[in-house]
């Protein structure tokens, strides 16, 4: 029973992270129809920037225990910086090839991803060694069920992810720019004819997606405290799993990404707890292949037939 509860808790914690990152993939895919391979690297950037900001803050305030606002401030700074990075990536790399064949866009995305990974490895950036982020949240046990502890850190992580997702949901369905996004995602040409500022909408999409990625990176750093070097393969895997989450939920679908994130998190945690723990990647990709074969549109998406 305890194990079940523990696994459930872990699944929700990691699943909400996947969901947060999956949102960025699904938004870009929904609008531009390509996999933004560099998204996972923006997550890494977010994690490392959180680390830098947290260290700076620690040095400036000289805290013994972190004040309550430290985490929020670092999160906001990291999100702002990554939003800027996302904007630049879109303008410099993706905009010049908009409308090019999908393969070319995919290759560009891989190029951007490699660029970010390897720039981050430079000594004057983040270096080639993993680092530890200072504690930003006073971790206390909130309550205990059976032998499972629910800590403040868990609550903060899931809470932040949830708040951001609700915010995005509101943005997409209840604001003007959100309506623009949905219009562009439906048909870029038509939206442009109807007076939707397509460039601005696409830039906004990247900005929001990158900010969410930064939040994902921040929460990841908070959860695991050690941050791996930028070119570490675990980051690419994290990005891939988040993308799988987006596909499983239904690509291009905001709610689907959340659902898919939770599904992947649960699958991983339950697979690790009750089956072989070293094979979690295999379960995730197995699920991807199964979904693509049986229900290519994902759980909430609908299958799209390619027309001539």
């Amino acid at each position: 029973m305890d194990q079940l509860l523990q696994t459930l808790k872990d699944g929700i914690a990691i699943g909400s992270l996947y969901a947060l990152i999956a949102l960025g993939y699904t938004m870009v895919y929904g609008i531009l129809k390509f996999i933004n391979f560099a998204h996972s690297d923006v997550v890494v950037l977010g994690a490392w920037l959180s680390l830098l900001f947290a260290r700076k803050l620690e040095a400036v305030t000289g805290w013994g225990a972190p004040p309550w606002w430290a985490g929020a401030l670092v999160l906001i700074l990291a999100m702002a910086a990554c939003a800027l990075a996302g904007f630049c990536i879109e303008r410099l790399a993706y905009k010049p090839i908009r409308g090019a064949p999908r393969l070319n866009v995919l290759i560009t995305a891989i190029g951007v991803s490699l660029f970010l990974q390897n720039m981050g490895q430079q000594e004057w950036m983040f270096g080639t060694r993993p680092a530890n982020i200072p504690a930003l949240v006073n971790d206390a046990t909130l309550f205990t069920v059976g032998r499972v502890n629910f800590t403040l850190l868990d609550a903060a992580g899931v809470g932040t992810a949830l708040a951001l997702m609700v915010g995005l949901e509101w943005l997409v369905f209840h604001t003007k720019i959100g309506r623009g996004m949905r219009a562009v995602s439906h048909s870029t040409a038509t939206a442009s004819l109807m007076g939707v500022p397509v460039n601005r909408v696409i830039s906004t999409t990247f900005v929001i997606g990158s900010a969410l990625a930064a939040a994902g990176g921040f929460l990841w750093a908070l959860k695991y405290s050690q941050i791996k070097q930028t070119a570490d393969t675990s980051w690419t895997l994290l990005g891939l799993k988040a993308f799988v989450a987006a596909v499983v939920g239904g690509i291009g679908n905001v709610r689907g990404a959340m659902l898919g994130g939770l599904a992947i998190g649960m699958l991983e945690m339950f697979g690790a707890a009750y089956l072989w723990s070293s094979m979690t990647d295999v379960y995730v990709f197995g699920l991807l292949i199964a979904v693509l074969l049986l229900r290519p549109g994902g759980i909430l998406g609908k299958a799209v037939v390619e027309k001539v």
């Binding site: 895919y29 390509f34 996999i35 999908r102 393969l103 995919l106 895997l237 891939l240 993308f243 799988v244 596909v247 990647d281 295999v282 995730v284 990709f285 197995g286 991807l288 292949i289 693509l292 290519p296 390619e306």
Partner: peptide, 15 residues
Amino acid sequence: RGDYLAIVTLGFGEI
């Protein structure tokens, strides 16, 4: 199609 194939093959390498 294209992108999905890329992801599946990437996943295959990992498996």
